[in-house]
Amino acid sequence: MTFANDAPLARYRTMRRIRTFEERVGELFLKGESAGSMLHLSIGEEAVVGLTDHMAEGDTFTTHHRGHGIFLARGADPMRMLAEIAGREAGYCRGKGGSMHIADRGLGHLGANAIVGGGIPHVVGAGITARNTGTRVVSVAFFGDGGMGQGILYEAMNMAALWKLPVVFCCINNQYGMGTRVDRSAGRQDFPARAEAFGLRAARADGSDVEAVHDAAQAIVEGARDGQPGFMEIDAYRFHGHARMDKSPYRTPEEEEEGRARDPLATARTSLADDTLLDTIDAEAEAEMDTAMKTAIAATPPASDTMFQDVYDPSTPAPRPQRARLADVLEERA
């Protein structure tokens, strides 16, 4: 069956791939194959696809620590992501970065960041590059409601507005900065109003409805492309704990039930109303992610001497291993 407009179906497919991917990340941890437990799942936040769908080839972006879904939506290879999360050489960053530091210059991913707000100002610089080189590239900073507390966001929004840069600030409000609900961290929760105060075009959309996000994001992203920087809040719910080990004891079962009912995948299924087709898509996603996980687990860890690579540009000497330095001292003293 075909739809008059295939895009909503494609968005559903991307959202399903994200969710299935994140479920596999959880399994990777349970199998003992992940590098550590600093794994922040974006389940419940898949409607970000409504914004990323307005991004084009060449556009750049930075993400926070909960950025797996965003990167998948921008074309990431799930196997290389899982390999990175598992600390394997085949990963996007050769096992140096992990879940919180995935990047891929080719796909425009300038880096996931584990410092809250850390990657936000980088899009201002990318915007300067776009302006100075005369491209139509947009750069998007993705962050959470926790990032709304960081001063550097306001510095960056001010610069973007001042210099009319092709930049979008996208706050995926999942209601929690770690264990602190947004009503315990924000004096006034109208985030778009903050952005508007700086001179940005701002919008807020229901994160349980990817089509609503898509509609609202159009003017924001296209406006930015034309030199009117924007801000987008996606109102979502973090289905799971902060990281893999967090069982969210700070929230009630009732709240979680209500929050998880705001499920962008369920909303899309209802709207697309073709269970057979959607089930096929789901099955394809399962198969894809199973294969990706199997391949990632089978991949080899990096050789230990690679730890000295890429501290500096490879054209310059790598840091000297400690054992070599000590061996020199001992030899001279012998």
Binding site: T62, G118, P121, G125, A126, I128, T129, I152, A156, W163
Partner: peptide, 27 residues
């Protein structure tokens, strides 16, 4: 466009320079 007076925002000055450097300028 090449000699940019900034607000008094040191963290974002360095942050913006990083983003510009990542994307092809030499700030």
């Amino acid at each position: 466009n090449r000699v940019i007076d900034t607000p008094i925002s040191e963290p974002a000055i360095v942050g913006a320079a990083i983003g510009a450097a990542m994307t092809g300028l030499r700030p």
